[in-house]
Amino acid sequence: MAKDTEHCAASSSGDDVTHGLVDQRVDDSGTRRTFLKVAAAAAATAATEGCGIGAPTGEEFLRQHYKTLTPDDKKRIFALIEDEVRGRSGVTIHMNDPAPIDGVEFAYALNLSVCNGSRRCVEACARENNLPDDPEIRYIRVLEMEKGSLEFEEATPYYDREKVPAEGKFYMPVQCHQCDNPPCVKACPVQATWKEPDGIVVVDYSWCIGCRFCVVACPYFARRFNFVEASIPPDRINPTQGYLSNRARHKGVVEKCTFCLHRTRTGRLPACLEACPTGARKFGNLNDPNSDIRKIIESKRVYVLKEELATLPRFYYFFG
């Protein structure tokens, strides 16, 4: 039943020229909306046959906040989630929950001089984090900017990536800035989102009530809401899943970039960085004096977006 939904969703997405681009397009929002409704209707039919309005199971309904889970609770919940995914898509996943590493604070830097707007980072992020294509959820938004202006109103994310880099333009990828003073965390009425000791802002997808106040509060347009029950084709599912990062999200909750914490906390680099063809992306531990990120911050003229809002981002831009 769930597979039917996936087929339906997968078959109707092929002709998207700007594949890898984000949700609602301005100029064709009408057609896309209609399409969304068709997809949703299919999902609805599937859901009605199964479990009515898609009410949560008893365990899910009663599941406690992440911070109050004991190691035993986690083991039990992870097993349940693994079973659920296996039952739904036939894929065996490995749930994990790597803890923040003592003394580590992550930061990101992006070299605007070399970013060429290929959007490889966007795609790699989507695969790594199990982001759906229908409707499209993407954590990274790449803006095509006019040379000579840092004004977003003059920018557009709707450009043809086959024709990059375009004359007179430069490219600015924007994703969650993992603020040290995150307005989204302040906004959440139920503490479903918080800043971890290594600086990463996470969401407990099982605690979020879906009020979207955090989406409203974010100055970087970094948070995404699940407007439907997402379905990922089984061959696209990344089986290594973090409880606080890339595990499956249900409809009605908010999600965001987590600096790939299931990778970065185990010594790997974020998927967007590995995919970047130009080396524009640098990531590392702020507290390590020999890290790339420290060298960049110390030697380059870096800046942050919307500094006046005092959000203190951990995401730096520079021209280098």
């Binding site: 949700d23 609602q24 929002s29 909306r33 969304l36 409704k37 997809a39 949703a40 209707a41 999902a43 609805a44 859901a47 009605t48 009515g52 309005i53 898609g54 409707p135 879906g210 989406v215 347009f221 948070r223 995404r224 809401f225 699940n226 407007f227 439907v228 029950e229 409809k251 009605g252």
Partner: peptide, 12 residues
């Protein structure tokens, strides 16, 4: 409730 907020015209 059944289909999700796709039933609304809200977007991110």
């Amino acid at each position: 409730l059944r289909v999700g907020f796709v039933a609304t015209n809200l977007v991110d």
